[in-house]
Every structure is written in structure tokens, then in C-alpha cells.
């Protein structure tokens, strides 16, 4: 059996010692699969991705990405992965083409290759008219398309996607979903963090639901549904992560603004 693309064992992390964000995460992501990584706000999804990229060092536990340790080999990992962050982290005053050139050159691609691939991505994502536009002038969805193009430019083996469909129009969403499936079928691995559970149910091979810094649910979509007596992923997510007293909280909110 081949080595998993991602492996986490007993990973703990806390920004403040008294408040752990990850509290003993155990997880494996087989190669060539799409993992839906779910959890409520503040559950530790983005923190996990930052640890996997070597941007954060966990307080405890063992982490492997493509067989490498992010603590000591983060540069080698970054060469082989692509990352679409939750917030559009781009230089506002660079143009779209300059942004892709910057990323491509960092990955060691020639300008000609960046131009060819970049043009293809921008055409496919209907962004070619904005090639020479500064990022600052783009809409949220357009920025997301630039991030996606930048993440895919060097043909990564593993993709970390943190809400990649955020702000995209329907056509672009359909295209990206199909692209993700094709990439996974071609042997690439996708670590997909999202709150859009319909999409997760549609395209992911496996799902993990985090609650209070721990893995609360793990398995294929079917396994998870069968274990929870059917229902949608949304229902299962709510059962696992929703605190008690929703009605009372809604009433309190309405009362507060009345």
C-alpha cells in the first residue's frame, strides 16, 4: 500500500496555552482522494492546513505530508503542493499575469511555461480579459480564480483548498468541481476544507468532521451517512457540532435588536 499523502498522529496545537485548537488529531489521507475537512468556525481547519504547510509548528504530535516532515522539510513540501487560502492572499498592486509569473518563477518554471499555462487557466476560468488588470481591481470571485490558477500552475501532487469556491459564479463552481474530480482521478490528492456541505457530499471521497479540536466523524460519505442512520451531510454535521438551545439563541438575537 502506498504512503498516505497526509498523515497526522496525536497533533495538538494551541495559540493560547489555556485554549487548545487541535486536541489530538489522528488522520490519514490516501493519495488520489478528495478529503472533505469540515468543522464549525474556529474548529481548527485552517490551523491544520497551516501545520501541514509548515507555517505553524504543532505543540505535539507527528505530521507527514507526502512522506516529509513539515517541521524540517517545509520547503520541499511547498514545492510539491498547491494552496488556496481562505482569504485572498495576493499582492493587490500586481497584475494577474505578474502574480502568476511571480508564483511560477518561485516554483522554477520558465516564463514561457507560465505564460502557456497561465493563459490556459485564465481562458478556462473566463478571466483572460483581466490578464493585465491589477488584483486590487478584481472582484472577490476573480481573485479566487487567480488564487486557483496560482495554486495549480506547477502541477502540484497535493492541493490544500480552503473554501476554494468562495465568491465564484455558478459556471466557475461547476468547472472547479469537475476539475477537482479529474485531478483526483489522475492520482492527485485534494485536502478540501469547506462549509458548503452540498459540494463536499457531491465530490469528496472521504469526510472528516472536527469538533472541539478532535476528529468527531471520519469515513466515506456513505459510511458516515450509514453510521448516522441516513440523512444529509448537513444534518449529520449539525448533530455533531451544534450546541444545544438553538431556538433560545435565535430568540435572544431577535430580542436584542427589537
Amino acid at each position: 500500500m502506498s504512503q498516505p499523502a497526509v498523515s497526522l498522529r496525536g497533533v495538538h496545537h494551541a495559540y493560547l496555552a489555556s485554549k487548545p485548537v487541535l486536541d489530538g488529531i489522528d488522520l490519514e489521507v490516501p493519495r488520489g482522494t478528495i478529503l472533505g475537512y469540515l468543522g464549525a468556525n474556529g474548529a481548527g481547519k485552517s490551523t491544520t492546513i497551516k501545520i501541514l504547510l509548515g507555517l505553524l509548528t504543532p505543540r505535539a504530535g507527528e505530521v507527514r505530508v507526502l512522506g516529509l516532515d513539515p517541521r524540517t522539510e517545509s520547503l520541499a513540501i511547498k514545492r510539491r503542493v498547491g494552496y488556496v487560502p481562505e482569504n485572498a492572499l495576493l499582492y493587490d498592486q500586481l497584475t494577474v499575469a505578474e502574480t502568476l509569473l511571480l508564483v511560477g518563477r518561485i516554483h522554477g518554471l520558465t516564463d514561457a511555461v507560465v505564460r502557456d499555462r497561465g493563459t490556459a487557466f485564465l481562458d478556462a476560468l473566463e478571466l483572460s480579459r483581466e490578464t493585465n488588470a491589477r488584483v486590487a481591481t478584481l472582484s472577490k470571485g476573480m481573485r479566487q480564480k487567480v488564487l486557483l490558477s496560482a495554486a495549480l500552475l506547477h502541477g502540484p501532487e497535493l492541493l490544500f483548498l480552503d473554501e476554494p469556491l468562495s465568491g465564484l459564479d455558478v459556471n466557475a463552481q461547476l468547472l472547479v468541481k469537475r476539475l477537482m474530480r479529474r485531478l483526483a482521478d489522475g492520482g492527485r490528492t485534494i485536502f478540501y476544507s469547506s462549509h458548503v456541505l452540498g459540494v463536499v457530499q457531491e465530490i469528496c471521497d472521504r469526510v472528516v468532521i472536527l469538533d472541539a479540536g478532535r476528529v468527531a466523524v471520519e469515513g466515506t460519505v456513505e459510511e458516515v451517512r450509514n453510521a448516522r442512520a441516513g440523512g444529509t451531510l448537513e444534518r449529520i454535521f449539525a448533530d455533531v457540532t451544534r450546541p444545544e438551545g438553538e431556538e433560545e439563541r435565535v430568540a435572544a438575537l431577535v430580542a436584542a435588536i427589537s
Binding site: L75, L89, I106
Partner: peptide, 12 residues
Amino acid sequence: SDVAPIAARPVS
């Protein structure tokens, strides 16, 4: 302030 766009890229 401008590290974020580069931090996840392979730059030593």
C-alpha cells in the same frame, strides 16, 4: 504585512 502571499510558497 506582505509576507502572507509568499509564506506558503517554496522560498527559504
